[in-house]
Computed example of a mutant assay.
Amino acid sequence: MSRRVVCLRHGQTQWNVEKRFQGHSDIALDETGVAQATRAASLLAALRPTLIVSSDLRRAYDTAAALGRVAGLDVSVDKDLRERGGGEWEGLTQAEIKAGWPVQYDAWEAPGGEDVTDVADRVRDAVVRWAGRLGDGGLLVVVSHGAALRLGICRLLGLPQEHWSALGGLGNCSWSVLEDGRRGWRLLEHNAGTLPEPVSSDDSPMVTAGV
């Protein structure tokens, strides 16, 4: 049996609602975010996770803790799962960023912020490190942030950087499911809000059977 990883984005914060760049800023879940975390926990606990690991930022940790309480598991913390650092943009709205840095806005490169490749590497390395603790058939839940997870998944799948934008973002308390098979990591579900269903199709046997 192969190992699986569920990459869960944290619940909503007030800064999400205001479209502010959060980055490393330690923003709490709002009331909606707490409810989202509770709902996600009730669903994902049914998958019987083996390990739960979270970013050290409270919006992620509190989302992970909701799952931990239902699943009866402690939550480990890994700073490498933090969101992409936003430099001078942290706390600013998208409108403020566009007005103040029109050139950098188009490239989404914050002055003093983290490079996307650095984020992709550290998140990929963290996922691989924690997945290495799983036995056959184990399930790891990684609770992190929208940009961090998207970039880490792209790196884990070996996608060329010029194609990273092809992978869409994650909604609050939505998740992606990855599987470590004989030919490496592959994406089973993306930006999901319900439990994954078995796949049966006319695709190749390797794709359908998950080998």
Rank of each mutant, 00 (worst) to 15 (best):
M1D: 14
R4N: 05
V6G: 00
C7E: 03
R9A: 05
H10A: 14
G11V: 04
W15D: 06
N16G: 05
N16R: 04
N16C: 06
R20M: 08
G23V: 11
H24G: 04
L29A: 00
L29V: 06
L29P: 04
G33N: 02
G33H: 02
V34Y: 02
A40V: 06
A41H: 02
S42Q: 14
L43R: 03
A45Q: 07
R48V: 13
L51C: 10
L51P: 06
I52D: 01
V53C: 02
V53Y: 00
S54W: 03
S54A: 12
D62Q: 12
G68P: 05
V70M: 06
A71F: 03
L73F: 11
D74T: 15
V77F: 10
V77T: 10
K79M: 12
K79I: 15
D80M: 07
E83M: 06
G86F: 09
G86R: 02
E88N: 11
E88M: 08
E88P: 13
W89I: 12
L92V: 07
L92D: 07
T93H: 03
Q94K: 11
Q94Y: 15
A95D: 12
A95Y: 15
I97V: 12
G100N: 12
V103A: 08
V103L: 07
Q104H: 04
Y105T: 11
Y105M: 11
D106N: 00
E114K: 04
D115F: 15
D115H: 14
V116F: 00
A120S: 08
A120Q: 04
A120L: 07
D121C: 13
R122A: 01
V123C: 05
D125H: 11
D125F: 13
D125Y: 14
D125G: 06
A126E: 07
A126R: 00
V128L: 03
V128G: 03
V128S: 07
W130E: 07
G132M: 08
G132P: 03
R133Q: 10
R133W: 09
D136C: 08
G138M: 05
G138C: 14
G138Q: 12
V141S: 00
V143K: 00
S144H: 01
S144C: 07
H145S: 14
H145K: 09
G146F: 01
A148E: 08
R150V: 11
L151F: 12
G152P: 01
G152M: 02
C154V: 10
R155Q: 13
L157E: 08
L159G: 03
Q161F: 07
Q161A: 14
H163Y: 06
S165M: 07
S165F: 15
L167G: 01
L167I: 13
G169P: 08
L170Q: 04
S174C: 13
V177W: 01
L178A: 13
E179W: 08
D180R: 14
R183H: 15
R186V: 10
L188C: 10
E189D: 11
E189N: 14
H190F: 05
H190L: 02
A192Q: 00
G193Y: 00
L195I: 05
P196S: 12
E197H: 01
E197Y: 00
V199E: 04
S200P: 02
S200L: 11
S201L: 14
S201E: 13
D202Q: 10
D203R: 06
M206C: 10
M206F: 02
V207M: 12
V207R: 11
V207T: 14
V207S: 14
T208N: 11
T208E: 12
T208F: 10
T208I: 13
A209I: 11
G210K: 06
V211Q: 10
